[in-house]
Write a protein that binds this DNA or RNA. Sequence first.
RNA 1: GCGGGCGUGGCGGAACUGGUAGACGCGGCAGACUUAGGAUCUGUUGAGGCAACUCGUGGGGGUUCAAGUCCCUCCGCCCGCACCA
Length: 854
Amino acid sequence: MTGQERYNVAETERRWQKAWDGKKCFAAQEDPSRPKFYALAMFPYPSGKLHMGHVRNYSLSDVVARFKRAQGFNVLNPMGWDAFGLPAENAALERGVHPRKWTLENIAVMKGQLKSMGLAIDWEREVTTCLPEYYRHEQKFFLDFLKAGLAYQKESMVNWDPVDNCVLANEQVVDGKGWRSGAPVERRTLKQWFLKITDFADDLLDGLKTLDGWPDKVRLMQENWIGKSQGLKLRFDIVNHEDRQIEIFTTRPDTLFGASFVALAPDHPLSLELGEKDAGIKDFIAECRRLGTSEATLEKAEKNGFDTGLQVHHPFLKNKTLRVFIANFVLMDYGTGAIFGCPAHDQRDLDFARKYALDVQPVVIPLSSDPGTFTVENEAYTGPGHLCHSDFLNGMTVEDAKAEVIRRIEGMNRGEGTTLYRLRDWGVSRQRYWGCPVPVIHCEKCGVVPVPEKDLPVTLPEDIDFKKPGNPVANHPTWKNVECPQCGGAAARETDTFDTFFESSWYQFRYTDAHNTERGFDKAKADYWAPVDQYIGGIEHAVMHLLYARFFTRALKKCGYISCEEPFTALFTQGMVTHMSYKDEDGKWIYPDEIEKGHNGALVRKSDGAPVAPGRIEKMSKSKKNTVDPVEIISAYGADAARLFILSDSPPERDLEWTEAGIDGAWKYVNRLWRLVNGGGSAPHEGRGGAAADADACMALRRKIHVTIRDMTQDLEKFHFNKAVAKMRELSNALEAFDGDATVFREGLETLIKLMSPVMPHLAEELWAQLGHATMVVDEKWPEADPALCVSDSVTMAIQVNGKLRATVTLPRGMEKQAAEKAALAEDAVQKALDGKSPKKIIVVPDRIINVVV
RNA sequence: GCGGGCGUGGCGGAACUGGUAGACGCGGCAGACUUAGGAUCUGUUGAGGCAACUCGUGGGGGUUCAAGUCCCUCCGCCCGCACCA
């Protein structure tokens, strides 16, 4: 035994981190002779310092990487920085720091913090997306996409701040106003770059079926996001202007006879045309535009409409006309930007109809209802049923009626059945500085000219002024002035930069060949490692990032860069890290470490003893001041304790509440394990005989060891890390209580150390060394369970009478049903519960339960 | 508003395909030790009851010999909604 009294965490963790580095334990190399495993955690935005969400994310991926490595896989576990984005520009504006400087300094700090976690990362492959070495390749991809017809320009809506003269992110619009200027935001159009993700809509949908390593909820969310639907495009003639028509889209053509109005999006061309002639309409459209572009805001706003005074003819009913409204809930981006409203069968239409006193005529009713009496009051009927009040559709099912209406409308040449997607093309243009420049040049003569490949990368201007309102890149005095590569005349660079989802759509491939200067990555290398075997990150990325990356992979495949279609074979989405929030008497948020328990047990502020009230448990955020700094935790308790706490208790997909008690408990366990090896407590150091009396205890411990190997292995495979930790504790409890043969004890100890190593790698190394090994546990093979040692020959069965537990009996495993019945009836408690009555039926589930029914 | 999810002791959670609800831990209670430590160790701990036993998985209803698990319905909380990452 060593002479140490206490476990010196800080020194030990640093020492093993150095040892791993020194031996380049986690440097990955292609090796076709071994099965590969690509573990990837979503890379962080370098915001300045590590937060607990990062610690959770990277603890999870590290367990996977270390576990797979021990199992003999050739593991790639890289890390990098999602380094472009708005916060760097905000910092520039607020503190006068250049975004590049701010970002790179943050990266340096955060890298040090990540390293203190002891992660099994191949740092040689680190990528930083804001550096030209990275983004030059995506400029090349973009040029390829352009050639392949996957990139194009079109007019599209943005949030416009009329005071700061700039485009605002949805996040920067607060209550319809610009977050800095406070000016009411307007929706306006701007010519922007798009990628044709819609070309892949069906393919992305089909691909979901193959992703059985993904959570069903994420697949479902993506399916709904793509939103494939069958419907009808239908043209209504305008009354008194029969040469003009309004084309609508509907997924419910069956309800056409229940239509009571037609509504246009505020940005619909006809709305705009009418607005030119009518000040009331113009004002209404302007009003709608003040809501900005966020779909959530539009949908949540009160349903408002404006009667245009126009009417349209119903296609089947000669004498029926419908009023035409402009309505704030109709989206220009979906379908044709116009709908017909059937209030009885759509809640929004119903709310609208009640507000504007329009007809509500049910035309689909449940099978059991009577068309004469069925009415809709405040709730639209959207269920199945058959048609009524609908002329030639009467009696049909919804499905048949849809088909019939489409058939007839097509026959009348008034429209056609259509497949429509909710998915829109991906707008990648941003009018910002801190992003990758879009590599094209605008020439008055030649139009849009791609930057020649030899001129890549197009780098950002260094000297940049954020004070002037507007796009800083466009404001630069000289940067955009270039010669046209085609005609040599004066031309202007594109000043838009890419959406930062562009960088995160292909980084998983860059890691496979991170230093390639010729191209984004070598195909052979990428094909060896890709796709990612296990991707881990937050559920908030369920749709956008993950869908963009899936699309990008397909686009890269189309351009010949990669062989796989899906970037991520398996996905795990972790929950958030939450913490209690606190407020002082004035209702101001206050940090947890500013608080202590006062004399009477109530919470008070350390500085002045003022009372503090606990608020709610919510996601850690700076604004609520309920954050806990991982750096402080790691320096106080060590990385192993932090990792242990994060992995125990809460299942990783659920929210994790950070608590002082929890990290304390983890810390105690770390020390307990240390003492288990270093003596103290009741642990035996040496054999105490090996007498016959020990045989049962030895057998029981060996069974425990092998059951633990079996169960922990399964738990780790299935991401049940909290359960794996519980099993680990059971084994260490058994070892502490064991009083028998030293060889068996040592087998238990060594197994325990190997099993703990993915979770607490530093401690595992230290204990392994203390047991006298010259090797590192990181190089040890994962233990294998002996199935013969896992089973015991007896089993405890529950005995119920009428479904209520009355007794338990220990019986030989695999006992015959009849013998089990007999044993059950022999129990006193069972006889008592029977109270003289004879059993009607006895249900025996072998090795489980016996239920006596009276 | 639309789409997706979650809900079990004082707390975090466990419970394989419907089969002993509460593994493991935190906290609590009682005790031991004294090297008074960030201690440690032992016992106990869902609620009610002296007990037999009864009640218990967000609320209400249902299916079943048997429901945390399946079905219906209601409530609460969380995530995403296309320019935050």
